[in-house]
Amino acid sequence: MTHRLTPRIPRTPVALGTGLATAAALALAGAGTAAAEPAAVAGPTTVTPAGHYFQANLAGTATFKAGSVTVTCTVSTSAPTSPLGTNANNRIPDAPGNTNAAGPVSGPINPPTYSSCRTSMPGVSAAITTTGTWGVSVQYGTPSTANLTIPKGGFVLKTSGLASCTVTAAPNGDATVAGSWTNGAPSRLSFSGVSVPVTVVGGFGCPTSSTSSTFSVAYNITDVTDPASQITVTG
């Protein structure tokens, strides 16, 4: 991970998958005109335990919708590369990198896998392929927030049967979706009704006019380095 949890966690969604940037501008007008107020500076964030690896396991179901087609999956996981220590994916940065005095902590994660998926269309099955390095980012607050980023073309959903469609998320570049973080045992990373750009190709029954997809997904976040510990976000 970078100076922060560095998915480049999220560089999220996935609606079908995945940004988190805030910009402040100071507008100046003619003499005697007041300047616009700058945007508030983000507060501090610390993710612990520093240096520990974590895993994300689906809590409930993940749903993806493009046009009139809805895909529901019951299995999804993002796990560290085995053996532990192979790379920085799914790893909280070592101190002091696990703390950001004025913003989020972020880092890379392995792409979540999706399986046991079904569609809302009779006679149509679905399979999802994910690639590349994804990212996750968390910001302490009330409530704490999170972002998940998928790389360009890093999420591809294909249907087969009565309708053969291919839905590609983030077709033109990295896409990030915003969600929430809740500390707990385990802690949870959630995204509800978020949207990501997509392209859809295929024949009859495929929502080829859709340019975005919405998804909802929640993950339980567990400590792989020390299963007795909890991954926690504080200020």
Rank of each mutant, 00 (worst) to 15 (best):
T211C: 11
N220V: 05
S82Y: 03
N220S: 08
A40E: 09
D174A: 15
G154S: 02
T22C: 10
S120M: 01
R11H: 14
T234W: 07
D174M: 13
A29R: 08
P104N: 13
E37C: 12
T199E: 02
G235T: 08
T234S: 00
V177H: 06
S125H: 11
A175F: 02
S76L: 02
A163C: 11
P96W: 03
P38Q: 04
H52F: 03
R188C: 06
A40P: 06
G51C: 03
T63N: 04
R118Y: 04
G161H: 12
V194K: 06
S209H: 12
L28C: 12
K65Q: 09
G107L: 07
S187Q: 05
F155V: 12
A31Y: 15
H52S: 07
R118E: 10
C165L: 09
A66F: 05
G123P: 05
M1Q: 09
G17H: 00
A101G: 04
G30M: 10
T81F: 02
T45G: 07
P143Y: 09
V75N: 07
P122M: 04
T6K: 13
L16D: 06
T130N: 00
T176N: 14
V217P: 06
V224G: 13
S76V: 09
P207L: 10
T113G: 01
L20V: 14
G17C: 06
P122S: 08
A59M: 05
F64C: 07
N90Y: 11
G17L: 06
T119L: 09
A50P: 05
S213H: 05
T131P: 08
T166D: 10
N220Q: 03
A42D: 01
G60H: 02
T119M: 08
C165G: 08
Y53L: 11
H52D: 09
A40G: 09
G85L: 09
S160C: 08
R91A: 12
N147F: 14
G202L: 07
H3L: 15
S229M: 07
G193S: 03
T145K: 11
A29I: 11
S190G: 01
Y140R: 02
A169P: 07
Q139F: 13
G161L: 12
T72F: 05
V14N: 01
T74P: 02
V69L: 15
V138E: 01
A228C: 12
G97M: 03
T48V: 09
R91I: 11
A50R: 04
Q230P: 10
Y53K: 11
S76W: 00
H3I: 15
